[in-house]
Amino acid sequence: MWRHLASNTITFMIVGLAGAAGVIAWGVNEYSGEGPLETAMCLRVEPGTNMRAVSARLEEQGAIGSAPIFRIGAEYSEKAGQLKAGSHLIPEQSSMEEILDIVTRGGASTCGTEILYKIGVNAVAAEVRELDPATSSYTELAEFDPTAEGVEIPAEYETMRERADTRYRISMAEGVTSWQVVQALNAIDTLDGDVEEIPAEGSLAPDSYEIAPGTQVAAVLERMEAAQAAILAETWENRAEDLPLETPEEALILASIVEKETGVAAERPQVASVFVNRLRQGMPLQTDPTVIYGITEGKGVLGRGLRRSELQAETPWNTYVINGLPPTPIANPGRAAIQAALNPASTDYVFFVADGTGGHAFSETLAEHNSNVAKWREIEAQRAAGN
């Protein structure tokens, strides 16, 4: 009898262990396997929130199948106390393990609301926008010009600035001048410490920069300068052979001219080839943007056409009068323009003119150029008549 009883006990223990192993295996699969979330969601974690509250909310919103298993996974991985406040983008079908990593990793908020400060050639704007996690696209909530006097600040802007998880970014467009950048940064109330000295023209990299409230304007400018210096050094190292450019600074000057001459990314190498060919042949560059810079000195937009007297005036930047490159860049060029200046297309073009589509018609001879100019004049006349 005792032998029979012992046998049954052992059997029960084996079954029990097998059952426990099965439960553990199921739990591990639930934790690391594909989750039930059908559409990406934005999970906001308030400061002071604990893992129990977060796991319950995730379960309620259909992101996880079991709040207890999520918490057990957090405890086992020693992440239960590492929850980070903020707005976290949870992709569809994320596993519990992946979600735990997202909410404990830290860093900038990945969804929710952001305030984007856009520094453009013609305008500056502060835009309050919210990411729709289902479409990964932003919806604009409010916009205003922070540099305008007497501008009414939208209530949405003030509200979002009070939230701890609001993300802040500065977006600097290609072709903006250093003066424009400084004026814009000084006007952004999220930043501290106005700057009076204008960085060298061309020395700032157009890009998107993450900031935090209280960041110094000087610190943002330093990041922009470091980024541009790195881009220029890398591109100069990989430049084409036999260019009529002696230094990286000359490359930056040429790149800024290319940047201002075309808004069509695909034709930057052809535009660069025109100026490189002109430099090789000793021809004046004859480009209007340099003349405009000589008038404005980069302090804003001219806002009108050039006068004949201005095209004939002697300034260091008037490339109708001087030979070769002007003494400084005329704007801050982006990476693509720098790349085009140092690796131009292989062409014999020495002329180009607008073609009516937003791009340019290129030519090798003056006769071809005059024909293209005549076509452009016809387009201009037709447009004027249509107005």
Rank of each mutant, 00 (worst) to 15 (best):
P244N: 10
L245G: 01
L245W: 03
A251N: 05
E259M: 01
E259L: 00
K260A: 06
A265F: 10
A265V: 12
A266F: 15
A266C: 14
P269K: 01
P269E: 05
Q270R: 13
A272R: 05
V274A: 14
V274W: 07
F275P: 00
R278G: 05
M283I: 07
Q286H: 08
Q286E: 09
D288L: 04
I292N: 02
I292L: 07
G294E: 03
E297W: 10
G298Q: 00
K299P: 01
V301D: 08
L302F: 03
G303M: 06
R304T: 02
R307A: 09
R308V: 12
R308Q: 12
E310Q: 06
L311H: 10
T319D: 15
P327Q: 03
I330R: 00
A331F: 10
A336Y: 13
A336D: 15
I338N: 04
A341L: 04
L342C: 09
N343S: 13
T347V: 10
D348S: 12
D348A: 09
V350R: 15
F351P: 06
V353M: 14
A354L: 08
T357G: 08
G358Y: 12
H360T: 00
H360L: 02
A361V: 11
S363M: 01
E364V: 11
N370D: 13
S371V: 10
N372G: 14
V373P: 14
A374K: 11
